[in-house]
């Protein structure tokens, strides 16, 4: 083995080790967060947490039932709003990929993706809260919806483009009009992946706090009304964590743990869905 070869091999080995170290360093924060959250939160998670309402200030016990339901309602509203808008937008971008309009829309989606979530919250505040002078679940859902839209648009567009062109030709050759071909063959073919993308987007907005602070606000009591302020897991954790009460701190950890679990479950579900659907579409 020549000296040159030996040097190159050493160099390669050193780099491999550095890359592995970099991965470890990158994973450390994640590991630490998970460790802390599980350590502090898993113990505090009990049946009461899921079923009881928050107790009055100062009293111990109670749970976050209203906040859990609130988060579900909020992401439901966001989905109802973002999926049709983002989906149709994605279809357009995939069907007319080269026009100036499409480039502009794509750029706009990317910009919206980068807007700080608190700014989106303020926007929703101006749009939905100010005109009627009240905080509401609807406003919170709208804010989260805006955050979801760019993700849905990009995922939908990318997945539609991955559908083999032969399917479109097959549909057209059977006498389908262009829009019929798109909605009856191409979109269904991409649907599994699109649904997965939606799950991921939902996981993302479920964890948002800032945009809810002045839209949905928060609520100590049970409410499922769209026109009233509503509690959410994230805001509740924020409120409890800042309080001086130990019991509330304990519950905040439990809330954080639950949030992490929700996101973990949604992500795993998305992964499994992708794998199952890949198997169906390609034997």
């Amino acid at each position: 083995m020549t000296a040159n070869l030996r040097r190159r091999k050493l160099f390669s080995r050193v780099f491999e080790i550095l890359c592995a170290l970099a991965v470890v360093v990158a994973l450390i924060p994640l590991a630490m967060i998970l460790f802390y959250v599980i350590k502090e939160g898993a113990g505090a998670l009990n049946w009461d947490f899921f079923t009881k309402m928050p107790k009055p200030v100062g009293e111990t016990g109670g749970g976050m039932a209203n906040a859990i339901v609130g988060t579900l309602i909020l992401i439901g509203i966001a989905a109802l709003f973002a999926i049709p808008v983002g989906g149709i937008c994605g279809v357009h971008l995939a069907e007319y990929p080269e026009t100036k309009f499409s480039s502009a829309v794509r750029f706009a989606a990317d910009v919206l993706n980068g807007v700080p979530s608190i700014v989106v919250g303020i926007f929703a505040y101006g749009l939905v809260v100010l005109p009627v002078k009240r905080f509401s679940a609807l406003a919170g859902g709208v804010a989260l919806g805006f955050l979801m839209i760019p993700i849905v648009v990009r995922t939908t567009e990318e997945l539609l483009r991955l559908v083999p062109g032969g399917l479109r030709e097959g549909a057209l050759a059977l006498g389908a009009t262009r829009s019929r071909a798109v909605f009856s063959v191409i979109v269904p073919a991409a649907l599994p992946g699109i649904l997965t993308g939606i799950l991921v987007a939902l996981a993302r907005v479920a964890g948002e706090t800032a945009p809810l602070l002045f839209t949905a606000l928060g609520n100590r009591f049970w409410s499922t009304s769209l026109t009233q302020p509503i509690a959410s897991l994230t805001v509740q954790v924020y409120t409890y964590a800042q309080s001086p009460y130990d019991d509330w701190h304990r519950q905040a950890w439990a809330g954080a743990f639950l949030l992490v679990m929700i996101i973990l479950i949604l992500s795993i579900a998305a992964r499994l869905a992708v794998r199952r659907l890949e198997r169906m579409n390609r034997p």
């Binding site: 032969g166 399917l167 097959g170 549909a171 050759a173 169906m280």
Partner: peptide
């Protein structure tokens, strides 16, 4: 006028 393509293209249905 029906058409059959070189690479078969059944729909994923």
């Amino acid at each position: 006028v029906g058409m059959v393509f070189q690479k078969s293209n059944p729909f994923p249905k």
